[in-house]
Design a protein around this nucleic acid. Sequence first.
DNA 1: TTGAAAGCGCTAACAG
DNA 2: CTGTTAGCGCTTTCAA
Lengths: 359, 359
Amino acid sequence: MTGPVRRGGSSPVPRSADVARRAGVSQKTVSRVFNDEQYVSAEVRRRVLEAAEELGYRMNHAARALASGRSRSIGVVSLGTALYGPASLLIGVERAARDAGYALRVVNTMEGDPAGVAGAVDSLLEQGVDGIVISEPIDEGPVSLSTDVPVLVLGAPPAFAGPRAVTVGVGSDLLARAATEHLLDLGHTTVHHLAGPRRWYAARDRLEGWRAALTARGRDEPPVIEGDWSASSGYAAGRELASDRDVTAVFAANDDMAIGLIRALAEAGRRVPDDVSVVGFDDIPVSAYVTPPLTTVRQPFDAVAQEGLRLLVHAIEKPDTDPLAASDPPVDLVVRASTAPRPPRTTPGRERRTTSPPG
Amino acid sequence: MTGPVRRGGSSPVPRSADVARRAGVSQKTVSRVFNDEQYVSAEVRRRVLEAAEELGYRMNHAARALASGRSRSIGVVSLGTALYGPASLLIGVERAARDAGYALRVVNTMEGDPAGVAGAVDSLLEQGVDGIVISEPIDEGPVSLSTDVPVLVLGAPPAFAGPRAVTVGVGSDLLARAATEHLLDLGHTTVHHLAGPRRWYAARDRLEGWRAALTARGRDEPPVIEGDWSASSGYAAGRELASDRDVTAVFAANDDMAIGLIRALAEAGRRVPDDVSVVGFDDIPVSAYVTPPLTTVRQPFDAVAQEGLRLLVHAIEKPDTDPLAASDPPVDLVVRASTAPRPPRTTPGRERRTTSPPG
DNA sequence: TTGAAAGCGCTAACAG
DNA sequence: CTGTTAGCGCTTTCAA
C-alpha cells in the first residue's frame, strides 16, 4: 500500500475526512457540501468550505467515480489531424462539455490504424466515460459498439453506432447543395465536383448534396474527382481540370483543395472567376484573403458541437426520457470573388466565338 | 449504493473477480495478468485472458487509480483555438501520450477567461492526472502552480511554472532569426516585423529572434506592428505598410497574417516579391499554394511534442532521477516565391530613380 | 438536517 | 509462481 502522497515534502494531500475533522462535522457532510446537495445548513456549509480552503482540499474524482459509478467525463474519438473542421469541432465539444460539467478525454485515431474507432472507444470505456463523442468518423467497415454508454456521432449516418447512439448531421449535404445551386444560379451549365476521400462520411455527404442540386435541375453530372482534403491534391485536380475548356464551375469539398485548385488553374492560364468559378467549403480563416477571395460555405461547427452535446448529456442524465430532436444547422453561403457568371462561350451545337470582357 | 451496472438489460458488467472465478484463479492473479506483471505462468495467463474475453471484461480505471494513486493519464491545458500551431501540438501530444501508455484529458482556456490557466490546472489536478502539459500559454500574470505533479510547458520561459516544471522551448526564436536572416541575406537593408499578440510567449519569442538577427548585423529596428494571428489583422497591417516605400521586407509571425498582408500589399499595387518580400511562420498546409507561394519557416510540432512528452513521462516515472535534457529542434526554412532580392531603389542620401523590372 | 456503516473494483504488501 | 488481507477516498443507504 502506498503511504499518503506528499506534496513537496510538506503536508500530505488532504482528504474529505481531514476537512470534516477541522470543520467539526462528519465526512459525509463534507461530501454533501461539495456535491451541492440540499439539507446542509448555511452555517455548516460555510465552516466546511473554510476548512477546505485552509487545507487546500481538492476532491478525488477517482474515488468519486468508483463509488458512484459515474465519472462525469465524456470521451471524444477524433481524427488525428489539424484540419480546420475536426479541430474546430473538438474545441466546440470541449467547451460544451465543460459548460455541462463534464471533463473531456480525447483519443485520436489515425487513418489506417488497425484498431481504429472500435479500439479508441474501448479505451474510453475502460476509462469509465459517461458518454462518447465520435467526431467525423471515416468508414472502416462496420463498427459495432457493444456498450450501454450513449454515443454521439457527429457527421455520420444514424446507422453508424450502437444501441444508444445519438446522431447529429453536420448538414454538409444541405450546405453542399446550396454551394452548387449558387453556381448554377450564376448561369453555369453544370458544376464539377472535387470531392474529399470517399472513406469520409463528410465527403460523401457533400457529394450527395452536389448531386442532388444537379439532379433537381436536370443537369449533367460530370465525373467526380477525388482529393484528400489537401491543397496539394486540389492542385493536382486543377491541372487535370484546366485542360478541359468545358469546365466553368467547380465545387471543392473544402477550402484547402479549392485554394490548390485555383493555383493550378491560374498557372494554366485559366482565370478565376473570369474563366472558371470555384466554391470552397468550411470558410477557413484565410479564405477571405487568398487571391481571389474565396466564395465558400461556412460550417457552423460550434452550433453543431453544442447541439450534439446537449443531446448527449440528455441521454446520459435522463436515460429513460425520449431522445431530444436535433435541429438542422443554418446554411451560410459566403459569396466572395471566386465566383462569377458563366463566361460567354461556344454553345453546344453551334459555333460562336466571343472575347471575354476585359479582366 | 448503486446496483451493478447493467448492459442493455442483459448481464452485469464483469469485474476482475468474475474473471478470476471463471478462470479458476484468484482475483489478484487476474490483476497481475492485466498489468503485465511477471511471475504468471503462460498457462494461467492464457486461461485468464480467455475468461476475460468470454466475459467481455474491461478493467476499471477509476478503481485502479484509487488504489494505486496513479491515473495513468496526462492533462493538457490548451488554448481554445483552431489555429494551426496549437492544434498540431495537441495532436502530437496525444499521440506521444498514447504511445507512452497515458490517456489524455483536455481543458481549454479561452483568452480573457478569468480563471485561466490556474483554474484549468486545478480541474486537471482534481481529475488526478499524473502530469500536466501547458501548451503555448499566454501571459496572464504570474501563475503559481502549487502541486507536486510534473508540469511540461511547451513554448514559454522556464520560470513559468511550479517546482516540478519541465520546459521545452519550441525554438521559435531560432526559427524567427533564421527567417529574418534569410531576408537580410537577400540584400534587404532591414526587415519589418508583423508580430503576434504581445500576451503570447510564442509571439515574444519570435520578436526576440527577429530583433537578434537585426542587432547582430547592426541594422535599424523598425517599429513593430502587432497583429492577432488572423489574416484579417495581417491585412490591416499590410495597408499601413504599403504606403511606406521604404518597406521592402516583412517577417510575419505566422502564415495567416502573412497571407492577409500580401493581399493588402497587392491591392495597394505593391508586388510580392518584386517590391516587397514576405516571410511567414508555421508552414500551414495552404501556404505552398497561395499567390505567391509563401516562404515560411516550418515548425517541428511533432518533434517538440514528442520530445516534451518524453521529458514529462520521465519526470513522472522516475521522479528521483535527474531531469532529461531537451534538445533544440532543427531549423527548417522553406524558401518559396514570396521572397526575392531587394529591389533597386533610392539610396539614402542620393537621389536616384530606377524603373523596376517588368513584372 | 446530520451521522454511521458498508462497500465501489482495484493494487500493495506480505505470506505461502 | 499464487493467494490473502487491508485499504484507496468517496457515495450510498439507512438511521437518528
